[in-house]
Design a protein around this nucleic acid. Sequence first.
DNA 1: CTAAAATAGTTGGTGTCACGAACTCAGTCA
DNA 2: TGACTGAGTTCGTGACACCAACTATTTTAG
Lengths: 134, 134
Amino acid sequence: MQLSFIVQAILGRLAGEQGLSVTQLRMLAVLDDRQIGMRQLAGILELEKSSVTGLVDRAERRGLVQRIAVPGNRRAVHVTVTDAGRAVVHLVREAVRAELGQLAGTLSDSRQDTLRRSMETLIQYYVTQRAIPL
Amino acid sequence: MQLSFIVQAILGRLAGEQGLSVTQLRMLAVLDDRQIGMRQLAGILELEKSSVTGLVDRAERRGLVQRIAVPGNRRAVHVTVTDAGRAVVHLVREAVRAELGQLAGTLSDSRQDTLRRSMETLIQYYVTQRAIPL
DNA sequence: CTAAAATAGTTGGTGTCACGAACTCAGTCA
DNA sequence: TGACTGAGTTCGTGACACCAACTATTTTAG
């Protein structure tokens, strides 16, 4: 619990340095390697679809993201990251990687490895349990 | 990173079931065994003092928390949890303990133990690094 | 083949959360 | 005593999240 707050604080700070909120960062990260609709996006982020509308609105206004029509389905919309959005998210990701890496550096290499594996197990379990893709 | 989102999601759900936000829960947890002023509370939660004013306002309105005058210092205020607040926070804490325990149950006992110790090390490092009490 | 149901997404209203800047009062110290 | 610091609040703004109601487009059933 405490560690999750710490990680979130770090994420918030690093994202904020690039003018992003944690949620925006998360959304961009999700979209980085996917092209999905609003509803699916809501599912992944565990948000209501109306929340996602606003989220995408704001990100789109900042040029980080784009709504594109889905050929063959006139009511659906796909959200994609723009080049600018991709650049920002990669920047923040690297910063996060660096800072969390430094934090993890407190531990011995073998403990880091064990930690990583344990966390991956937990994530895997949660994801399959909740049927939520990450 | 992903695990922190998962833990936050769980926290949010369980707190929400008792009508609390994650921040409120966190504040109550901090105050559970302490009696501190607004400024210190802000420091622990890593928030601006003006944010804490609102946070305490809302919690006080719900009877979870109380501002009490500090004898011998007429500008300072101490925040305390009410019995109702204490009851709620303990309820949520137990629920969180149960659910995270179940999640951790995925791992063998020895790995759970190692995980716990590693996380404690990281928390400790972060806290001393940032001089933030938890 | 059309009427009803389901689905994707948006809108509008409400409440929470967080921030910064400006402000009030009370204590400090020079 | 008069300037300074510190604790808290107020005010205005914006992001975020939810729910309920709505539009418009499939899909399904009769």
